[in-house]
Design a protein around this nucleic acid. Sequence first.
DNA 1: AATGAATGAGAATTCATTCAT
DNA 2: AATGAATGAATTCTCATTCAT
Lengths: 189, 189, 189, 189
Amino acid sequence: MRNGTKTKKRIDRTALKLFAEKGVRETTIRDIATAAGVAEGTLYRHYASKEELASDLFVENFTALGRELAKIQEQEANTRTKLLAIIRYFCAAYDKDATMINYLFITRHGYMQKLTARMPNPYLVFRRVIRDGMARGDIPKQDPDVAASMVLGIILQVIDTRILGRRIRQRISDLADTLTAACLRVLNA
Amino acid sequence: MRNGTKTKKRIDRTALKLFAEKGVRETTIRDIATAAGVAEGTLYRHYASKEELASDLFVENFTALGRELAKIQEQEANTRTKLLAIIRYFCAAYDKDATMINYLFITRHGYMQKLTARMPNPYLVFRRVIRDGMARGDIPKQDPDVAASMVLGIILQVIDTRILGRRIRQRISDLADTLTAACLRVLNA
Amino acid sequence: MRNGTKTKKRIDRTALKLFAEKGVRETTIRDIATAAGVAEGTLYRHYASKEELASDLFVENFTALGRELAKIQEQEANTRTKLLAIIRYFCAAYDKDATMINYLFITRHGYMQKLTARMPNPYLVFRRVIRDGMARGDIPKQDPDVAASMVLGIILQVIDTRILGRRIRQRISDLADTLTAACLRVLNA
Amino acid sequence: MRNGTKTKKRIDRTALKLFAEKGVRETTIRDIATAAGVAEGTLYRHYASKEELASDLFVENFTALGRELAKIQEQEANTRTKLLAIIRYFCAAYDKDATMINYLFITRHGYMQKLTARMPNPYLVFRRVIRDGMARGDIPKQDPDVAASMVLGIILQVIDTRILGRRIRQRISDLADTLTAACLRVLNA
DNA sequence: AATGAATGAGAATTCATTCAT
DNA sequence: AATGAATGAATTCTCATTCAT
C-alpha cells in the first residue's frame, strides 16, 4: 500500500497522543514526525499546517463521539435507560481511549468554532435526551442547557480530578452507574 | 517604588487577560508589553520569565480564591448553608472577575504542580465541606473526591457552557441557588 | 512514444506560461504538474531538473527566434526593408505568443550564459543589419552595439509599457511601422 | 546611537545589493544578515518579511528617482534642455549607483502595483516632458505613451546591453548626449 | 526602574527530488 | 513512461531573553 492511508493514520494517532499530553502549541512538528517515524515534510502532504491537523483531529473525533452517542440513545426507551446507556458508553470510551477524550476536553475552546450546527455533537445528545425526558414527563421542566451542563459537568469533572490529582483511582467505567444515579438526582428525575 | 508597583499591577492584569483569552503559549511578551503600555524589557524587572509570570498568576489567584472560600465556609453552621455560601461566593467571584476564574480553569493542568499541600485550594474547600457534612451526618457516606468533583463539575460546566456556546445567558450569580440545590441533591443531602 | 512527446509538449507549454507569469523561482514543480495534468515525477522523465527545464525553454525559444529573424533579414535587399521586416516579424511574434517573448525578456539575464557565440541570437541579428547598413552606406557610422541596443530598446520598452501600465492598448503589430520609422530616425538612416 | 537607524541602513544597502545581483527570491535572509553583519532576527525588527523589505526598497528608490527627475525637468526652459537634463541625471545616477537602478529595473514588474498614482514616477516624468513639448509645439503630436516608452527604451536597453554582454564599455554618462540626440530624433523634435 | 534594539535558538513550512509501485 | 507518497535540506519567521543606554 503506497497510498498514504497508513502514514496518515500513524500521524493522526501520534499527534493526538502528543497534543493530549502536552498541548498543541507545545508539541512541535518534529515531535510528531519523530514519534510517528516519518519525515517532517510528510506531515504537510496530509495536512496544510499543524493547526489544520489539530483542528481536523478535533472535529473528526468530536463528531464521531456525538454520532455514537446519538445512535445509542435512540436504542433506549426511556430517559433513565437512555442516560444510563450514554453515560456508560462515554465512560467506556474514556477507559478505552482516554487520550482522545482528553484531547477533546483540552482543546474544545479552541476549535468549537469549527463545528457547524449540523454536525453530531455530544453535548447536544445529552441536551436532547433531557429535553425529550421533559416532554415525556420523565423529568420536571427546567432549563435544558443548564440541566445538560450540570449532567456533563458531573461526568467530566470526575474524569478531570482523576487526571489532575490522582485522587480518584477507580476505572471511570466502574463509576458509570454512580454517576448516572447522581445525574438523575440532579435532574429530579 | 509606587511607580514600580503600579507597573507590576498593569502587567499582571494585562497578562491575566491575554492569557485567559488566548492561552499562555499563544500570548507573546510583546503582546503583553504593548497592551500594558510598557517596554518588553520591563517585564523582566518583575518576573524572571514568562513562565514565572503565568505560574505566579495561577498560584496567587488560586490560593486567594481558596483562602476566601475557606473563610466563608467557616462562618456557616451546617452543610447546607456552607455549600450555599461558597457557591454563592464562587458565582459572584465569576461575575466580578470572569477573566481570572477562566484563567484558573484554563491553566489548571499546567500549574497544578506548583501548588503544595499546605496552600489554600478551592477544590479542597469543597471536599472539606463535604467530608465534614458526612462526619456530622448531613450527607450520606460516599467517596469525598467523587462527591467534590461532581459538585464542582456542576458549577464549572455551567460556566463553561455559558462561555462556549452562548446558550446560557443569565448571570451566573442568578443561578447560584439553583446550582446549590442541584449539588445538594447530588450529594443526597 | 507519441504519448511521451505530447506530455513533454504539455509540460513545456505549461511551464513557459507559468514561468512567464510568475518567474521561474516562484513557480513550483507542483504548479507545473497540476496545470499540465501530469504527476510531479513525470517532469523528471523529460528534464533532469527544474533549472534544466527553464534553461532549455530559454535557449530553444531564443535561438528559434534568432534563426527566424536571420532568415527574414536575408530575404530583404536594403537596410530599410530589412529593419521593417524583422520588426514586423518580431511584433507579429509577440502578438502571436506574448507569453514566449515575455519569458525570454524576463529570464534573459539568468540564462544568457547558456548561449554560445554560434547560436542564432535576435540581438545579433539587429546588430548585423545595422553593421551591414553602415558598410553599405545606408546608415552613418556609429557604435553598432549602442545602435542595436537603442533599436531593440524602442521595441521592447513599448511592449513592456503595454504589459506594465496598460497605457498602450493597440496591438503591437499595429505599431510595427511606427516603431520602424522611429528606429530609422534613431539610426539617422 | 541605539535607535536602529544605522542598522536599518546597513540592512537596506546590503539587501539592495544582493537583490540586484541575484534576485529577491534567490537571496536568503541569511545572505542578507550575514553580509550586513546582523542576526537574522534583526531583519524582522525593521521589516515584517523579506517581501516587505524588497517592496519598500523598490517604492522608496523608485519614487526618490521620480522626485529628483521631476525637480530637474522643472528647472529647464524647453523640451530639448529638459530632456537633456533628465537623461544626464539618469545616466549619472546609474554611474553613481548602478546597483540601485538595476534593482528598480529587475523588480519593476513585481512591485509596480505597490505604487499609487500620486507617487513620483520616473516614467511619468518622461511622459510629462514629452506631453508638454507637444503642447508647446516643440514636438509633433504623437501618442505620449508610445513616445515616452521609446525614449526610455533607448536609455534602458543601452544600460542593459552593457550589463549583459559587456559589449558596451563606456561609462553611461559618457553616452548621455548621444542618447539624448537619439531620443530627440525619435520624437522628431 | 525602564527602554527597545538586537540576538539566536528553534519552530513551521516549502519544495525539488527520489523511488517504490 | 507515469505516478504521487515520502523525503529532508533549506528557508522563512517567531519570540523569549539580553543588554547597552
